[in-house]
Design a binder for these strands. Structure first.
Length: 524
RNA sequence: GCCCUUGUAGCUUAAUGGAUAAAGCAGAGCUCUUCUAAGGCUUUGAUGGGGGUUCGAUUCCCUCCAAGGGCACCA
């Protein structure tokens, strides 16, 4: 990977001449007027009698003593307030392109062998998935795709809140037996009508209804959202019925991490950074949701994950502090990350309304997917950073769906496919790839392809997966410009070098789309 | 009251502390005898207010204003 190569060379030089230097950035240039890669090193170094441009000169002189460096980089210049910009040699672009395409086909090893657990969606089995669930669903799925592609050993997990001791199961039971109103909705009403709950206890009826809801949601997630899970983790089966919760409570008691007050048992989370202590055993003798959560996370960490990731809705952000406290309290090893997806507000007739199940203005994810298609929906959700407060205008989404950037990207892929298919019956001319890269739009496209591994690696570090949409769009745009300037097919011949570039572009664009869970059509 | 998140162009969004803040849609205009015009090109237009740190701030800190969310022996 060319960026690794340059970074290493730069690091080596800096270690020699500025051993105390920290926080040097080395990036893909924002604009190709500034070369292909850029560093701010000369502005970070503070030497009293030298200005940044002198320092940049020093660094460049030092770099140029390295023969390998000279082979890879054709141009190094100092620009603006003291940036050093690097332009790759055409030989380097050619050889790196080859390597990049090969690696991109088989996957990278940035986080090779790292065991990662990603828990997402985990919607309560009380009704159908709505717009808000879409964020966590697609974010978690895409993040898992990226980690796997980068060499990680990923477990995708869905936690099912189906404990018979929970209040929501009791409420579902009342609803099923006709004595309650909570969780009343299209899905629950239909299921109650289709199934017989008479003669059942409230708890049994509630559990049965929850199971039916969960089954429908799972079918929807797997078949309509095309999101797969490795583990559907049942709170009732794995934590309550198995006695794990009881064991965990005994352990807490033994370690003197809980105490009794007002008839209930409380965990001493305050001592580990939480704002207040939390109930683990209620005064009615049942375990709280929090205790289940402790047991569940204890189990996750004991399964040996180097990284445990939770994707939670904004309404759960209060849980982050207490879980972090528990992790410290029980000494779990491994990284623990929680990503919070901000809520989705709904815009109807120009007015913004909160998405509340009780208010009955819920838009189901299923309806949205049906209405505008999975590809558009996936693009739409992932385009935005997680912490933005999405305002969802359903009417506008429908109106804009046919102008969606995802079609632009898919269209570029279809175009490439068409060109490739058309060359099958033709004979090659003698033009090589290095000739094609002499044109600006050809070179720009090749350099954009070289950025793909870096995009993936960055995403594994900061988990900002919306970057992939931007990349896919930019790649499609670079291709469109190449398409305008260079013909692949001319009469009975095809241009060998140009075809090679198109083939490479299609591989990487298709890979990017597959990470996003979006189809890459041959025809449109 | 305390805690979390967010305010960027008319709209929806980008931008690991970097260079002239980037796109799409909408508006104005140009471009099809051309491998898919669902394309290409030109153009109008923005960082909520005020301080601070920095060579440099949309980004970090403080404050004010505005929006959303959370503060149960619910999950």
């Amino acid at each position: 990977m060319v960026v690794h190569f340059l970074r290493e060379k730069l690091d080596k030089v800096l270690k020699d001449i500025f051993p105390e230097l920290r926080e040097v950035s080395f990036n893909i240039s924002a604009d190709n007027r500034f070369g292909d890669y850029t560093t701010n090193v000369a502005m970070v170094v503070k030497i009293s009698d030298k200005n940044p441009k002198d320092i940049a000169g020093l660094v460049i002189d030092e770099l140029k003593k390295d023969k390998e460096f000279i082979d890879e980089v054709s141009e190094t210049n100092i620009a603006g307030p003291g940036f050093i910009n690097f332009t790759l040699s055409s030989e380097a672009v050619l050889s790196e392109l080859n390597k990049t395409v090969k690696e991109s086909e088989k996957g990278f090893d940035f986080i090779k062998g790292k065991k990662i657990n990603i828990e997402f969606i985990s919607a309560n089995p009380t009704g159908a998935l709505h717009l808000g669930h879409g964020r966590g669903a697609f974010y978690g799925d895409i993040l898992a795709n990226i980690f796997s592609f980068a060499g990680g050993n990923v477990t995708r997990e869905y936690y099912v809140n189906d404990s018979r001791e929970s209040n929501q199961i009791k409420e579902l039971g009342k609803l099923a037996l006709g004595t309650g109103e909570q969780y009343k909705g299209e899905m629950t009403s239909a299921l109650i009508e289709q199934n017989d709950f008479s003669q059942m206890s409230e708890a049994d009826a509630g559990f049965k209804l929850a199971t039916l809801i969960q089954r429908d949601n799972r079918d929807f997630i797997e078949e309509k959202l095309l999101v797969r899970f490795d583990e559907w983790y049942s709170e009732d089966g794995k934590l309550r019925a198995s006695g794990s919760n009881q064991k965990m409570f005994d352990e807490l008691k033994e370690k003197n991490l809980v105490y009794e007050k007002e008839g209930a048992w409380w965990a001493k989370t305050t001592e580990y950074g939480d704002d207040e202590d939390r109930v683990v055993l209620r005064s009615d003798g049942s375990f709280s949701y929090f205790l289940s959560d402790i047991t569940y996370h204890s189990d996750k960490f004991s399964r040996g994950y180097g990284e445990v990731i939770n994707v939670w809705g904004a309404d759960h952000h209060g849980h982050v502090k207490r879980m972090t406290a528990v992790k410290k309290m029980l000494g779990w090893e491994g990284e623990f990350k929680v990503f919070i997806t901000q809520l989705v507000s709904l815009k109807e007739n120009g007015e913004v309304s909160k998405m509340s199940k009780r208010a009955g203005n819920v838009v189901l994810l299923e309806d949205l997917v049906e209405e505008i298609g999975l590809d558009v929906v996936r693009w739409f959700y992932n385009e935005r950073a997680l912490n933005t407060h999405m305002e969802f205008d359903v009417a506008l989404a429908k109106e804009h769906s046919d102008k969606n950037p995802v079609f632009y990207v898919q269209y570029a892929h279809a175009r490439m496919s068409s060109i490739i298919a058309n060359t099958k019956a033709l004979s090659p001319n003698g033009i090589k790839l290095d000739e094609i890269l002499k044109n600006k739009s050809g070179r720009d496209l090749a350099v954009k392809l070289l950025q793909f591994p870096e995009i993936v690696e960055l995403s594994t570090e900061d988990c900002q997966v919306n970057r992939l949409n931007t990349y896919a769009y930019e790649l499609a745009s670079q291709f469109s410009q190449f398409y305008r300037d260079t013909r692949v097919i001319e009469e009975d011949n095809y241009n060998v070098g140009a075809l090679e570039l198109v083939l490479s572009t299609r591989i990487i664009l298709a890979k990017t789309l597959s990470l996003l869970g979006i189809s890459a059509p041959e025809k449109m």
